[in-house]
Amino acid sequence: MQDPADSESLLASDEPPAVDWRAGSIDPFFFVCEHASNRVPRALGDLGLPSEAFERHIAWDPGAAQLTLGLAERFGGAAVLQRYSRLVIDCNREPELPDAITPLSEDTPIPGNQGLGEDERRGRIAAIWAPFHAAVDRLLNARVAARKPTALVTIHSFTPVYRGVSRPWHVGIISTGDRRFAEPMLAALSREAGLVVGDDQPYSARDNVDYTIRRHGRERGLPHVMIEVRNDLLRTARDVSQWVERLGDALTESAGAVGLPGPIRV
């Protein structure tokens, strides 16, 4: 159950690296999915959990990877996806926060995350968290240096019921203090009859969920938005395809609203 203190011993040579990325060839969208996978490094075993726990939202965002890749394919945009579970370390948190390696997720204790020493935490940061954000930094810095128009879009999914409370939203738009891209996204999605759209729902920056868009978007001055889709609406390939179309149309409209060049559908 212990984390080795270095990335080489945490991830075996035949295990995938922490980051799956593609540079993209068409502007302006840069897609990121921090919770794409429920994989755990072999060195950590099962974190003391039954196998069914890794199908739950506590381990990943079901459907988010497929949605991210579908949007990247629609636009020919760049994409960066995390290959390991948020239970190993949450890449949408500052690594020093207690819930970055959470000992309790929703109502479920995570035995393999309890009582970790500093070396164990550093091992997870070095192997999983740091390479992920380094990849985002590298790709975005190259785009900024080349003066390529860029909008950062992070993709997540959320549970229909959280701690016994039903959530009415079909999709949520999460923002930082810079709402120039969030506002047109909300306007575009809210025009669809019957679609319940959350503004900073079911999460907001107050819940510490804005790390990626804040660090990589707001701090660079880039238009940015975090999109949350309810995960029971992403169960099939057809579901995902419908959301790719819906969100793709809203992203296209929003890019125009903030003065970015119109994306080309490929």
Results as ranks from 00 to 15, higher is better:
Arg121Tyr: 03
Gly198Met: 13
Arg214Cys: 02
Leu260Cys: 08
Gln242Arg: 14
Arg124Phe: 10
Ser190Trp: 00
Val88Lys: 07
Gly48His: 10
Val266Asp: 05
Gln2Phe: 02
Tyr203Lys: 06
Pro4Phe: 08
His133Ala: 08
Ala65Ser: 11
Ile264Gly: 03
Arg124Val: 03
Asn141Gln: 12
Ala43Phe: 01
Glu52Ile: 03
Ser25Glu: 15
Val136Trp: 03
Leu71Pro: 08
Asp199Tyr: 01
Ala142His: 09
Ala79Leu: 10
Gln2Gly: 02
Val88Asp: 05
Asn92Trp: 06
Phe30Gly: 06
Val258Cys: 11
Glu52Leu: 07
Arg214Ser: 08
Asp46Arg: 14
Leu260Arg: 08
Ile213Lys: 12
Pro109Lys: 04
Asp99Gln: 10
Val171Tyr: 04
Asp61Gly: 11
Glu73Asp: 15
Arg147Asp: 13
Trp169Asp: 02
Pro103Arg: 08
Gln66Arg: 15
Ile227Val: 15
Asp3Arg: 14
Tyr203Trp: 13
Ala23Leu: 13
Leu11Trp: 11
Ala135Gly: 01
Pro17His: 11
His156Arg: 03
His216Glu: 13
Ile155Thr: 04
Glu183Gln: 04
Ile227Trp: 05
Val19Gln: 08
Thr212Asp: 06
Ile264His: 09
Glu253Leu: 10
Ala151Leu: 03
Tyr203Gln: 04
Glu8Pro: 00
Ser175Ile: 04
Gly70Pro: 03
Ser9Phe: 03
Ile58Asn: 09
Asp199Trp: 02
Ile58Arg: 13
Thr68Gln: 11
Ala205Ile: 07
Tyr162Asp: 01
Thr154Tyr: 00
Ala134Tyr: 01
Asp3Cys: 12
Lys148Leu: 14
Phe158Tyr: 11
Pro149Val: 04
Phe29Asp: 02
